[in-house]
């Protein structure tokens, strides 16, 4: 059974990874042998300078999901490289580092800090964080997306993945802009802008007023965006958005995703990524699928045969 998939020139042993911002402190709490079975790890987005993040409350649960407005709290590129990267490298799983610059120059500097580090096999450009008070995200502007991806591609020694936002009029326009600029893959999708209000206090629940919705609540919408984008572009898609089970992951794969990331579900069931991986294998065995490639984009849309 072949589970391996490729992004750019990098081969991953299987398609299962974790979504940025939903996995951490593996060295302290996790069975590293199990973590080592995943296709890749994606740590929380790193910015050039350290960020403190947003004021509390930063999270709230909602029907079948949650809102978050963490505000990319992170130790900055140098802090990350010194304090976090070594323990991630020791796990031995390929790393995809998510980076976010506040300008094209910052993105370029970030790339130069990361693309030659051991174990880092790709960079994910976070063009779509809803929690930084920006009026327009890079991922809402096809020109900006194109310009940025192109600049980064010019210098990066590793494949470049553009992480896009769901709140766009037409996902195919942005997806194509990223592809045309040379992106090696797309990550779909980041959280949906959302809010919750405490009616007693008549105040927003989140300290940041609004946040991003994630979890199973967004899965059908994420699936539709992945399917739509996959119809438009040739580059691989890393899909995320409410994946809880292997069946959820398989839906994204059939819709055209090459890799799948477990995000919010890690908070509820930290074993989910491994369960998803095992479930995909079981499905392949049960359905006599020898190669995961046979499933990617394998959705049947022709009219079902009707019996005369």
């Amino acid at each position: 059974m072949n589970l391996s998939v490729k992004i750019g020139n990098v081969r991953f042993k299987n398609p299962v990874t974790v979504a940025s911002g939903t996995f951490g402190h593996a060295e302290q709490y996790y069975d590293l042998e199990e973590v080592g079975r995943l296709g890749a790890l994606v740590p929380k987005t790193v910015t050039l300078k350290a960020r403190l993040g947003n004021p509390p409350a930063r999270i709230v649960e909602t029907p079948a999901g949650m809102l978050n407005a963490i505000g990319i709290e992170n130790p900055g590129a140098d802090g990350f490289i010194h304090h976090k990267l070594p323990s991630l490298q020791r796990i031995g799983v390929p790393l995809i580092i998510s980076i976010l610059g506040h300008s094209d120059e910052e993105f370029v500097t970030l790339v130069s800090k990361f693309h030659e580090q051991r174990q880092i096999v790709a960079l994910e450009l976070n063009l779509s964080c809803p929690n930084l008070g920006k009026k327009v995200l890079v991922a809402q502007d096809p020109q900006a997306t194109h310009r940025l991806v192109k600049r980064v591609k010019k210098i990066s020694r590793v494949p470049v993945i553009a992480k896009l936002a769901p709140q766009v009029t037409d996902i195919t326009v942005i997806a194509r802009a990223a592809q045309d600029a040379g992106a090696d893959a797309l990550s779909l999708i980041n959280t949906f802008p959302a809010m919750a209000i405490d009616t007693l206090r008549r105040r927003p629940i989140l300290g940041n007023l609004s946040g991003g919705l994630s979890g199973p609540a967004i899965r059908p919408m994420a699936l539709c965006l992945v399917y739509t984008a996959a119809q438009e572009v040739k580059i691989p898609i890393i899909a995320m958005g409410g994946i809880v089970t292997a069946d959820d992951a398989l839906q994204f794969i059939l819709a055209g995703a090459t890799m799948v990331a477990v995000g919010t579900t890690n908070f509820i069931n930290p074993r989910a990524p491994i369960e998803v991986l095992e479930g995909i294998k079981k499905y392949m065995r049960g359905n006599k699928v020898k190669d995961i490639q046979q499933l990617i984009g394998g959705l049947r849309t022709e009219a079902a045969e009707t019996k005369g």
Binding site: G21, T22, G24, H25, A57, N68, P270
Partner: peptide, 17 residues
Amino acid sequence: EETMACALGACLGCSIR
């Protein structure tokens, strides 16, 4: 006490000042 999601230090959701 603070509202928690992961409780493993992963989400950074339960921060206090």
